[in-house]
Design a protein around this nucleic acid. Structure first.
Lengths: 195, 195, 195, 195
DNA sequence: AATGAATGAGAATTCATTCAT
DNA sequence: AATGAATGAATTCTCATTCAT
């Protein structure tokens, strides 16, 4: 599908990126060894430098690839706020599910981007920003209670998303949709009974 | 007994532990340098080995110290479930505030234990366990709604706690009690309006 | 015969030689990179080995080319001694000027041959030899004072030639003829006043 | 004499400097290997970094040491111009002899400073400057002919000095004083006979 | 209780060179 | 006549750790 006639070199580069994602995910930036990255794709070390200037460069290329996918994803998610207001929970839940799926689609990359890179926090902030903006919109139109502390809620939401992403990536213990549903439920309705 | 009259050696050891916590917190285990740890307390490298077998040992001693404080703390928090049932939110909120305070009391150590060590996840699981047990209890007595997914809620709660702990440690942007209140509010009542 | 219609391959070889002269001149043998030599003529590294066995080979080809030009030049300069004896200073000065001109005609090559190669000293010795022989001849016929230490004078003359060649190559600060004249003047008449 | 109670470390550092001077002199900066420098004094590579930040640092320390000796030497030589004017040739010759001796006293260092470092030219310029100033002075008082091109003469003088220094360093073929005398003679009186 | 001096093991990176096409 | 892809062999430098004092 996305492998339409890659030249040998391009293929090697992709293989290196994948191998690097795995190595970085497993050991973190500094403990990741170029020797491991290359030997996993049956290359020698000098070959690495045919494709990347140095260790930092391949790392940044991974992060940058992640950003290039994440940002549009987030942009699209903003749209939620522009849709008709019925079934808001339903919509957010679907959006959440999509995010989980996106992160789960390349676990190594996600792990590197969120947990091994200095940009991880930047990515979180982008998402918090997005949630805050969505929450604010719905608060204005009365779907979200006016007493909610938007910033705390947005950050808390992303904290949960983050945690369950981590779970999904590390252990496949639940199916994603169910998890999205349960997390949304908790978040929307809170935990208390009567009131 | 382990009184305040520390011998010179014991004092040096304490200073090393503190310096190490700082260094590990700032750079992570692998990037932390023994040379930095010792020079921050005006010692030479060989002196380090008078007190600790190796780098791993001082790290584990830090983690172990953290565990020794955290576990009793958590045990005590369990007690919440055994108290009279009025004012549950209030109680949980106070517990949360205490946790924040505990973590904030030694930010370097907390950072290392939660974010730089492999045991970080273990500590989180202990806390999730605790929350789940508390939630379960309150669900049984009807204070928490029966439709709540306990495990997800507990894990979500700790995810938020985790996130805001991180915020508190890194930036002192809010006072802890307010944050505890706002996070509790979000979590207890959810975000939606009507209900 | 080795006419101006160069085949493509011969042309490429010449281009490589020129590029190499530049690179060797700028960085010296060991710091010169084949990658730079080839990329300056828009070739890839393997192409280099189509024309030269290795780095050493292209270097020696440059030196050898220089020698092939220098030796006849020196031979011809010997002729000075065989000419009528009037206007000796004038003749030597003209010879000097020619040498300067020769060296300046391919600065990169000259720089490499004299200052970057082990054969540089050999070239200097050849020239010292030549000057000594010329001086000796003129000493015998009484044009050069009998108290002159021929070897030292010859070596000193070449030392100056060498230095000013270096100047000419690196900075075009003076016109060559003037320099030749001033150097000759210094050398012929010494520096003292009276006499 | 200059080895009054060096601590072991200081001694090792001196040994490394000497070994480095030798290695740099023989192979030039880039081809010099730290492995050779250390193994010549029976140390392992990491020990090198106990004493010098890197290869560049030890090199600069050598050059800087050379400069610290050369500059005062040159300053003192300036004094020649301030002395009574009889026996000028004699004085310059003695100064020359001293310079030769100075350079010969640490051949490796001299070779490195003059021929392997980028500062070599700077050192030459300082000396040319000095000679020009001396020549100018004597020209003004009539000891040096007014038709002399001071700059060319000064540069030529240093060129000879340079050359014979090189000879002295590489081969001990003549005794220094004789060489100084012969070079001075050539330079002062020129080469021509009658006039 | 502490240090001066030294090292073993390993990591990234560079570069001339080759192979297959 | 030329290139895409790859590598062997070095080399600098870092760091935890040890030894002798």
């Amino acid at each position: 599908m996305n492998s339409n006639k890659l030249s040998k070199g391009e293929l090697t580069k992709q293989r290196l990126l994948q191998s690097a994602a795995k190595e970085f995910a497993e050991r973190g930036y500094h403990e990741a060894k170029i020797s491991t990255i290359v030997s996993n794709v049956n290359l020698t070390q000098p070959s690495f430098y045919l494709y990347f200037k140095n260790k930092e460069a391949i790392f940044q290329e991974l992060i940058s690839h992640f950003r290039n996918q994440l940002i549009p994803f987030v942009e699209r998610t903003y749209e939620i706020a522009k849709l008709p207001h019925d079934e808001v929970p339903q919509r957010i839940q679907v959006g959440l599910s999509h995010l989980f799926q996106f992160f789960a689609s390349d676990p190594n990359l996600t792990k590197v981007a969120f947990y091994q890179s200095e940009q991880g926090e930047e990515f979180r902030l982008v998402m918090i920003e997005m949630m805050a903006s969505i929450f604010k919109h719905y608060q204005e139109v009365g779907l979200i209670r006016s007493s909610l502390f938007i910033e705390v809620a947005a950050e808390g939401f992303i904290a949960m998303l983050d945690r369950f992403t981590y779970r999904i990536i590390l252990t496949n213990e639940r199916d994603i949709d169910t998890l999205a549903k349960q997390m949304s439920d908790t978040f929307f309705y809170g935990i208390l009974a009567e009131r």
